[in-house]
């Protein structure tokens, strides 16, 4: 035994210090309205639960699942706002359920619905597989002949950290009216993938050119009329409109509407924007992964 410790009761030491769960019970109850149903339809069903101190809406949903409705479908993984799985809508606004404290809604109803820009699977789960299909159509990172380790300085890459924070919760996709209201899914990639395209385009070692994808391909960046709805809901505070979409729109405008560039393109074909060592309009071939969410 060390001089600090004097454990006389070994068995006692082997038991983890008990937390007092009861102390966290507030003694209050709260009712949540949760969508129960599937793609065919459904309704909001009220569930009353005991309120626990600091509880987030995901805690409440999981408590309901364990105690009242075993088959209540909800998607979640990390419960720490790192993975972006538990996105749904609370009172009509996209939210990470793991990051939304119940007490934020004091004095209001809490209505939890699945993301609305995608087909509903069941209860709080939407079919977001469309996003993975779009992702597979973006040309991946391509450093050409350069071999890592790369020499890149902090000032070369610091603007890439922000778009790389994306946790793929798809809430920006959910709130974007081009998708949500106008259902342009076949010809518009959505904010999430402008964020991805931005870091790829701005990566100092990347040699691919994705401007054609943005303008003529299924990127469809011109559909965005910069209402900034996406930026407002981003749980990791990416300034999607200002830092991703507008710079991409500017690049597209430069490439397609600058008369000198237009002429050059006619003569020499597409080249990497601003790069002298582009590959003359050839596009790195890449195969598309097949994504399935069901058999």
């Amino acid at each position: 035994m060390s001089d600090r410790t004097n454990i006389t009761d070994i068995a006692e030491m082997a038991h983890a210090p008990a937390y007092n769960d009861d102390a966290a019970n507030t003694g209050e109850t709260r009712t949540l309205q949760i969508f129960r149903g599937d793609g065919e339809g459904g309704s909001l069903v009220p569930y009353e639960i005991e309120l626990i101190e600091g509880m987030v809406v995901l805690d409440a949903v999981l408590k309901i699942q364990a105690e009242q409705a075993g088959d209540l479908a909800v998607r979640w993984n990390c419960k720490a706002a790192h993975c972006g799985s538990c996105s749904a809508e609370i009172n009509g606004k996209p939210k990470l359920l793991c990051k939304s404290r119940v007490e934020e809604y004091d004095g209001q109803e809490i209505k939890v619905m699945p993301l609305q820009a995608f087909p509903v699977v069941k209860d709080l789960v939407s079919d977001v597989s469309w996003n993975y299909g779009v992702s597979a159509q973006i040309q991946p990172f391509n450093p050409g002949k350069e071999q890592a380790p790369f020499t890149m300085y902090e000032e070369d890459v610091e603007r890439l950290y922000e778009p790389k924070k994306c946790i793929e919760c798809f809430m920006c996709q959910d709130v974007c009216h081009v998708l949500r209201t106008h259902h342009k899914h076949p010809e518009f990639a959505g904010p999430r993938f402008f964020v991805r395209t931005q870091w790829l385009e701005m990566h100092p070692m990347d040699e691919n050119n994705r401007l054609q994808f943005l303008k003529e391909g299924r990127g469809g960046v011109q559909y965005c009329n910069i209402t900034k709805c996406c930026s407002e809901v981003c749980p990791v505070d990416i300034h999607i409109t200002d830092n991703s979409i507008i710079p991409l729109k500017e690049r597209v405008a430069d490439e397609y509407y600058d008369p000198a560039k237009w002429l050059m393109r006619k003569i020499r074909g597409n080249r990497r924007n601003g790069s002298a060592n582009g590959n003359g309009g050839t596009r790195a071939s890449h195969k598309r992964a097949e994504i399935r969410t069901n058999g």
Partner: peptide, 24 residues
């Protein structure tokens, strides 16, 4: 957020191959 960087890099690498992914 190193793990996020790792998994996103691997995910995008796999998406650019013929690998089939059976989610959920």
């Amino acid at each position: 957020r190193t793990g996020l960087e790792l998994i996103r890099t691997m995910q995008e690498k796999v998406l650019a191959t013929d690998t089939k992914v059976y989610m959920e």
